[in-house]
Design a protein around this nucleic acid. Structure first.
Length: 293
DNA sequence: TATGTACGGGCCATTACATCA
DNA sequence: GCTGATGTAATGGCCCGTACA
């Protein structure tokens, strides 16, 4: 930029009228005198080198012409190499293509703008498809969540019925084996094979996302119900587990971010999923969300 | 050294015009 | 031939960085 003014002005003065003759407004754009648009001056303030130059100001501007295919091709090629122009390169290009340096600069400017617009469109599409996928996942999760809620409710009711029945028949007996529920899951499946199967084979994503259990900090009464030996026992301490699913939004962002598998039941079945791994064999946190099943 | 000014150039919004269906 | 849509060359305003007095 520096030092380029005199040379460029000279060059532009030589081409004054740029393949067109004359100007299209009473304002003398610096397109023709140093290329600075915002330093334009009214005609009356401008000094002209000759009468001819002065008259050029009042001629009808030549109709705007599109650049030829060759010119555009060459400009495109340069743009691919570098999308901004060095002053020297601009002059060189202008000379090669028989254009005003200003035209070359404008072409690059417009080209950058088009490029940016396209990029924005691409970005928008990517974001949009990501959103759609997330929405789909969310809907699936919500449905599954509802289903699980129903199951929990059903199990609670069953349990209550059993408790009542056992109280009536054997008042002081230790809770039945079914209620001791060792964490190997077999008892659980005895209790309600169908439910357990559903639970244990639910989609991996659900396991990963929903069962946020970090066994220490948890909002789930179920997760609190580990026996001293670490075995999971949701029914060891009767509690109101209905709140587990009551308010999904209650999960803190940290917990949502730190997706871990639920440690309950202590799964020793073939469908056990390593808490620290996602379905792809690396930490869930490292998996892009669109890879979730 | 700090400051004001001029200038070049980039970006953005907009206009003007060419081209096409 | 007219017309609306679209693409693109060009304009004008604003801002920023740099050189220089």
């Amino acid at each position: 930029m520096e030092g380029g003014i005199a040379f460029e002005s000279l060059l532009q003065n030589q081409n004054l009228g740029f393949s067109s003759e004359g100007f299209d407004s009473p304002w003398v754009s610096n397109s023709f005198h140093g290329e600075k648009a915002n330093t334009k001056k009214p005609v009356s303030e401008k000094e002209y080198n000759s009468d001819e130059e002065y008259e050029n100001c009042f001629r009808q501007p030549e109709k705007k012409r599109r650049l030829s295919a060759d010119q555009v091709q060459c400009l495109e090629k340069c743009f691919k190499e570098e999308n901004k122009l060095e002053p020297e390169r601009k002059l060189q290009l202008a000379k090669e293509l028989d254009l005003q340096p200003r035209q070359v600069a404008i072409w690059f400017q417009n080209r950058r703008a088009r490029c940016k617009t396209k990029q924005l469109e691409k970005d928008y599409e990517i974001l949009n498809s990501g959103y759609d996928k997330l929405k789909l996942d969310f809907d699936c999760l919500q449905k599954h969540n509802d289903k699980l809620k129903q199951e929990v409710q059903m199990l609670k009711e069953k349990l209550q019925q059993r408790e009542i029945g056992e109280k009536d028949s054997v008042p002081n007996e230790i809770p039945s084996k079914e209620l001791e529920l060792e964490s190997n899951g077999q008892e659980i499946s005895n209790l309600n094979p169908v439910s357990f199967q559903t639970w244990n084979t639910k989609p991996k994503m659900v396991i990963c996302k929903q069962e946020y259990a970090n066994s220490v900090s948890t909002k789930s009464d179920i997760i609190d119900s580990y026996s001293p030996d670490g075995h999971y026992s949701p029914f060891l301490e009767p509690c109101d587990s209905s709140n587990v699913f009551e308010n999904q939004s209650d999960f803190s962002q940290d917990e949502e971010d730190n997706l871990t598998i639920l440690r309950c039941p202590k799964i020793e079945y073939e469908s056990y999923i390593d808490p620290n791994e996602g379905s792809l064999g690396y930490p869930i946190n490292d998996q892009p969300f669109w890879l979730w099943p």
